[in-house]
């Protein structure tokens, strides 16, 4: 029964996450940017823009310029999260179909991933402390901003408890996910019976479901930010989008 509920919930959440975020990305793609508004100094070539975007995504360059505290906590959290996610891949991948070298890499990362959980939680705690203690940040926070941090900390904490205090049966957990992956519909392998696991999975499901409707859209959003992804060449190349073009021949309304 519980297994069935979780199985159906995972299908639902996965579809929602993929379709929801996919649809947002589609929307961002079709909305034009009618004017050149790169924040300058900006790169004058596409290669330069790729490099700028890489620095923003991989190093949080602008944030580093802005505020060292947020950068340290935010970076700890995101890198921790990334490592933890990579570490989780092992539960969802079938070694038979994964090239040996990749699998070896995943094995290698396991011990680091273990500590990444601490970094993630510490980063989140730091961000939350700022949200509560720094009056400017408190002023701009809504309940959802606090809840998002609570949710992520709870996910991290329930995971860490299984890691260090109350281990669950990883083999049957993996069998469960494999049966999901192979669409063994209503013939799912049973989910191990562990309260922390139930909690952990419920919270993760929640995160997946709210992703497309929340500020987590910053992850795809950053790639579409015109002030960061435009090439600084307005004098050299004429930039004009269809609705603006239609003003010129008088064919369209705005």
């Amino acid at each position: 029964m519980i297994t069935t509920i979780f199985a159906l919930a995972f299908y639902f959440a996965t579809i929602l996450l993929i379709v929801g975020v996919g649809y947002r990305i589609y929307e961002y793609t079709i909305v034009p940017a009618p004017l050149k508004i790169a924040t300058t100094p900006a790169p004058t070539t596409t290669t330069g823009v790729v490099y700028r975007m890489f620095r923003e995504v991989a190093l949080f360059e602008s944030l580093f310029k802005a505020n060292k505290w947020i950068w340290i906590f935010g970076y700890m959290f995101h890198v921790g999260l990334l490592l933890v996610l990579v570490r989780h891949l092992r539960y969802f991948l079938d070694p038979r179909f994964v090239p040996g070298i990749v699998w070896y890499g995943l094995e290698l990362i396991q011990p680091i991933g273990k500590y990444a959980g601490f970094a993630m939680i510490a980063g989140l705690a730091g961000l939350w402390a700022r949200r509560v203690l720094v009056n400017r940040v408190r002023y701009i926070s809504s309940p959802s901003d606090h809840l998002m941090l609570a949710l992520l900390i709870a996910i991290g904490a329930s995971g860490m408890i299984m890691q260090y205090v109350n281990p669950t049966d990883i083999t049957s957990l993996k069998n469960f996910f494999m049966s999901l992956a192979y669409f063994n519909l209503f013939d799912w392998q049973p989910l191990p019976d562990n309260l922390f696991l139930m909690g952990h999975l419920t919270l993760v499901l929640t995160l997946m479901i709210i992703f497309p409707y929340s500020k987590l859209l910053h992850a795809p959003g950053i790639f579409f930010s015109p002030s960061r992804n435009q090439v600084d060449n307005p004098r050299e190349v004429r930039h004009i989008v269809p609705w603006a073009k239609s003003l010129e021949d008088g064919s369209g309304k705005k």
Partner: peptide, 12 residues
């Protein structure tokens, strides 16, 4: 569109 969606209220 993107700016209204993306802010995480980081406070930077």
């Amino acid at each position: 569109r993107v700016y209204l969606d993306s802010c995480v209220k980081c406070g930077a």
